[in-house]
Amino acid sequence: MAPTPREQPDGTARALLEGATTELAPKPHANPLVPLVADGRADRRALAALAQEQCRVIPADRRSFLHLAGRSGDAGLAACAAFFGTLAEGEGVALDRLGPLLTACEVSAERAAAYDPMAGCQAYPAYVAWLALNAEPADAVLALTANFAAWGGYCGTIAGALRTHYGFSEEACGFFDFFAEPAPDVDRAGLAALQEGIDRQCLTPPTALRQGRLLQDYEEMFWGTLAGLA
């Protein structure tokens, strides 16, 4: 039997997401670090800092997504809860892949534990935590999914460059490969969550876009801070 419109998101959610992704696309030259990595010109200390900052970002985002999943469930937003639960699972996978990256960057466990994170890099997860506490779950879905496209593209470029210019192994590139790979399950879950927000009238696109712009600004701050080490 064919799925009903509520079981399979219709074009409304897809059009909304595509429009938001276009509107929130990074400005040209917004990321000063990735082109340096792509050409093999970035200093390895910038790569080490990137890996160590992610050691703080990934666990923080995972906890934020779990909190959003819980809030969504409490509000009866099953699709939103499933989406954030899926994101939290992905962050767990990414965390497991950080070890080989740190090793390739010659960062020991002791050095990683003693690392002092930079405010410009931690502003993004701090704002994700703010969303977890304050945003309407459906708004947070749109703000986050519109931002993911740029992040995935950056990771794909970095993964290729680490192999080509820096001699990193397949395992060492696994962290970036994970985020660069297509994620159809996440895409479907995101569309279902957006459609749920539309149906339940708890999604406010202007608010979600405002939140998405802040996420994009904080991501630009992340890359700009690291570029200062390159």
Rank of each mutant, 00 (worst) to 15 (best):
M1R: 12
T4G: 15
P5T: 00
G11R: 15
T12I: 08
E18R: 15
E23H: 11
L24S: 01
A25W: 06
P26H: 02
K27P: 01
A30V: 09
R45V: 13
A46F: 09
L47F: 13
L50I: 12
I58F: 09
A60H: 12
D61H: 08
D61A: 09
R63I: 04
S64A: 15
G73P: 02
A75I: 00
L77A: 13
A81T: 04
G85E: 10
T86V: 03
E89Y: 11
E91C: 11
L95D: 14
R97D: 01
C105Q: 03
V107R: 02
V107Y: 01
S108L: 07
Y115P: 11
Y115G: 12
M118L: 14
M118S: 08
A123H: 01
V128D: 04
N134E: 12
D139P: 00
T145A: 14
T145F: 02
N147W: 13
F148K: 03
A149F: 00
A149T: 08
A149H: 04
W151Y: 15
G152A: 13
C155T: 01
G156E: 08
T157A: 12
T157Y: 09
G160L: 02
T164S: 09
T164M: 14
F168P: 06
G174V: 03
D177S: 13
E181Q: 12
D185G: 13
D185Q: 13
D187M: 07
D187I: 00
G190H: 06
A192Q: 09
L194E: 06
R200G: 10
T204A: 13
T207Y: 00
L209M: 12
R210D: 08
R210C: 06
G212H: 10
R213E: 13
L214N: 08
L215C: 07
Q216K: 13
E220F: 03
M221Y: 01
W223V: 11
G224Y: 02
T225L: 01
A227W: 08
